[in-house]
Write a protein that binds this DNA or RNA. Structure first.
Length: 568
DNA sequence: GCCGTTTTCGGCCCGACTGTTTTCAGTCG
């Protein structure tokens, strides 16, 4: 099995952990972690890049040395440096770093003075009181460790749509204490959120934290200081809240929105001018030279405003410096939905009801794309039923002014890449979305070939939910996205960003990869009910994270333009 | 280990909170 990017990143992270415990130069440690983040965030596999003779040292945070080491890892499946570190520092020291209160220094102390190598060693050491008298280990830390060892809390991330519900309730609860805004990865609209970072501008900072700890849903208070309070909600979601004065609002919003990597890059720009950037403002000595708004801070650093969705240190700062930031697509740009189901198959509403809901959103068109016959569970349509639905749509269309129901289908891609309906049937339709709903675990090469073969059918206009993943529930099927996007470009087939909150498929990185190759994208909700049209905003979020403009998205176009753009 | 509008050497983001200390180090985000 070839080495995946995630495994390379994990090896680099483990190396950083062990180097840190060993007491190595912290900047060397940081370099390994930075490289891990870079590898993790690549839209394509390192293996594929090497196969194409691409120079890894051109990636940010990866120089000649690490490029060579990473190439070795891909070639051999092993990381010599990591293996050597593991021999020197045997056990589960890396795992111990995940425990609360344990960082490299205390782990090293445990290792040297208490001969703790594994989590089990640590359990025993606590039981027999071996930690008493160990410098830096008091009763509180000991108790916390014992509890954490009992019940290792699994790292949990929440889907954005779930976090949004929690966040909106919290914001409403705290509103009377000042201006409340949710920052963090939530504001950057990441597909999942690890915690909520709330920012409150208030004259009475302490009152805000005091109110938060009385919130009904709070399970644990993790920290409660004069300016910062942290709690864990019953759902497991952690909430950090910080109160800041108005004059620091912009700097604080910038700081708490992140990403961390983006912030570090901004601070680098500040440092180069002998300034200091923190959550209170941009400072020259002790004089605040910006901070009330994000725009002000960016401007002082010589940059235009960078939208939160782009703040990942993936090249946005270079683009901003050059004045060539893309004008990101918005919900208002969308003129129609190209993936919609009705009660003819597994939807809950009639065609007319779905159309009325789409028109109520201000759309000019909607493609009705019910399932094809292979989806027997959801009463998929055979050629006769497709013909019948076409007549029905013609009838309903007569009742609308300035709105069109496009005749479409979500046709299954069969195991061999053929489609579930004959070309003669597909040819009668305006929009054909082709999707994989079966045989998720083919070998990567076969899965890739299967999907490309489906796109080679000239009837197909859009590839639906291209990776099939369900966030937190089902892994994407293994395909070579580099090949799929290249094929989409050559064949002029659009790729879908499925906006359903469990899917968000393509994801941000793949959407960006497609855009950069000139592939057209469709942002569609896959709505099975009238309410599901509102999911469009989640698709837009990911599109913006992929740097897409309205021009990259087919369903921002008026109907006539859309029809010439969609390959049929 | 990386990197360059101050640098090919010498820097590398910054502050709050906690628990442990008696003035601060380690951890965390």
């Amino acid at each position: 099995m070839p080495v995946q990017n995630a495994e390379i990143a994990a090896m680099l992270d483990q190396t950083a952990d062990l180097l840190e415990i060993k007491g190595e130069n912290q900047f060397r440690v940081r370099a390994y972690r930075r490289a891990a983040r870079t590898i993790e965030g690549l839209p394509q596999s390192v293996r594929a890049m090497l196969a194409r003779d691409e120079d890894l040292s051109e990636l940010p945070g990866i120089g000649k040395d690490l490029a060579g080491k990473i190439a070795d890892i891909v070639a051999s499946g092993h990381f010599t440096l990591l293996d050597r570190l593991k021999r020197k520092l045997p056990g589960e020291l890396g795992d111990m770093a995940a425990l609360p209160g344990l960082g490299p220094k205390r782990i090293k102390l445990l290792y040297d003075k208490a001969h703790v190598r594994t989590l089990d060693d640590l359990r025993k050491a606590i039981r027999i009181g071996k930690l008493h008298g160990l410098h830096g280990f008091g009763p509180v830390i000991e108790k916390k460790l014992a509890a954490a060892l009992e019940k290792p809390a699994a790292e949990k991330r929440f889907r954005l749509s779930v976090a949004e519900a929690e966040a909106e309730a919290l914001v409403a609860f705290l509103r009377d204490k000042g201006r409340v805004v949710v920052a963090g990865s939530y504001r950057r609209r990441r597909e999942t959120v690890g915690d909520l970072d709330l920012l409150v501008t208030s004259d009475d900072a302490e009152a805000v934290g005091d109110k938060l700890v009385t919130y009904d849903n709070v399970a644990d208070v993790l920290a409660h200081g004069p300016t910062r309070t942290a709690v864990r909600l019953r759902s497991g979601l952690q909430v950090d809240i910080r109160a800041v004065p108005e004059k620091s609002y912009g700097a604080a919003l910038l700081y708490f929105t992140g990403s961390k990597a983006h912030n570090i890059a901004l601070r680098g720009l500040a440092n180069a001018r002998k300034w200091k950037l923190n959550e209170y403002g941009l400072f020259l000595g002790r004089r605040r030279i910006a901070g009330a708004t994000e725009e002000e801070v960016y401007a002082r650093l010589g940059l235009p405003y960078i939208p939160p969705e782009m703040r990942e240190d993936r090249g946005e700062i270079v683009l901003a410096k050059a004045g060539s930031l893309p004008k990101l697509v918005t919900v208002e740009d969308i003129r129609g939905d190209l993936h919609v189901h009705s009660n003819w198959t597994d939807g809950t509403a009639t065609i007319a009801e779905m159309a009325a809901a789409a028109q109520a959103r201000g759309y000019a068109y909607m493609a009705l794309t019910d399932h094809s016959r292979r989806q027997t569970m959801s009463h998929g349509l055979d050629p006769a039923k497709v013909a019948k639905q076409i007549r029905e749509i013609d009838k309903i269309n007569k009742t609308f002014n300035n709105f069109t129901i496009l005749k479409g289908i979500e046709v299954d891609i069969l195991k061999d890449g053929m489609l579930d309906l004959p070309d003669a049937t597909l040819a009668q339709l305006d929009v054909v979305v082709a999707s994989v709903h079966s045989f998720f675990d083919l070998r990567p090469d076969d899965q890739t070939e299967r999907i490309i073969r489906a796109m080679q059918n000239r009837q197909v206009s859009i590839l639906g939910h291209p990776t099939g993943r369900l966030i937190g529930m089902r892994e994407p099927y293994e395909i070579d996205m580099d090949r799929v996007t290249s094929a989409a470009r050559e064949l002029n087939c659009a790729l879908e960003i499925n906006a359903e909150p469990d899917r968000l498929d393509l994801n941000d990185l793949h959407a960006h990869m497609a855009k950069s190759k000139g592939v057209k994208l469709a942002i569609s909700t896959d709505a099975h009910s009238v309410n599901a049209f509102q999911y469009m905003r989640f698709g837009i979020d990911q599109a913006r994270r992929g740097w897409l403009t309205a021009k990259d998205v087919v369903n921002t176009r008026p109907l006539s333009e859309l029809m010439t753009l969609l390959r049929r």
